[in-house]
């Protein structure tokens, strides 16, 4: 019975470790998707001048469900993103549709550069912090289980 409970405890630590790693992973996905969305908007705004809503809906099938919730779901519950990330992405979307084609392209370029930097930063963070925390939590769980045996 004790072994079984310890196994459950360790399983709990595994879940927490995965969740923490996943938070880093979806942040990376968010910026990866934002780079894709920015490039898609930039290329298509000047070509066929479809409105932003239509262009965004065209990108929806190629982005992660987490980003999709942030972009499309009005009653979004996106607790898994950092507030600062959400604010920056919203700032980008709020800035769209206010000028002519060349202004839009310059504006998207400005945000695209930042999104690419953030993608790189979140990728590094995933490989460093994400993996470290994953191992740390697993180690902690293992140590606790060993102590309790």
């Amino acid at each position: 019975m004790k072994i079984f409970l310890l196994f459950l405890l360790f399983l709990f630590f595994i879940c927490v470790a995965i969740c923490v790693w996943f938070l880093y992973y979806i942040r990376f996905l968010l910026y990866k998707d934002m780079v894709y969305i920015s490039k898609y908007l930039k290329n298509n705004i000047s070509f066929n001048k479809k409105d932003i809503k239509t262009l965004l809906s065209e990108t929806s099938k190629n982005i992660s469900i987490f980003t999709r919730n942030l972009v499309f779901d009005e009653n979004r519950n996106v607790f898994y993103f950092k507030k600062s990330d959400i604010e920056y992405v919203n700032e980008f979307f709020d800035s769209l549709g206010k000028g002519d084609v060349s202004w839009e392209r310059n504006n998207i370029d400005f945000y695209l550069n930042t999104f690419e930097d953030m993608k790189q930063e979140s990728c590094d963070s995933l490989h460093k912090n994400g993996v470290v925390y994953f191992k740390l939590i697993l180690g902690l769980g293992l140590a606790l289980c060993v102590m309790l045996i």
């Binding site: 705004i45 932003i52 549709g97 000028g99």
Partner: peptide, 13 residues
């Protein structure tokens, strides 16, 4: 005007 352009001013500029 923003609404007329579907919040995409460039499309009607």
């Amino acid at each position: 005007v923003q609404k007329l352009s579907n919040n995409s001013l460039y499309s009607i500029n």
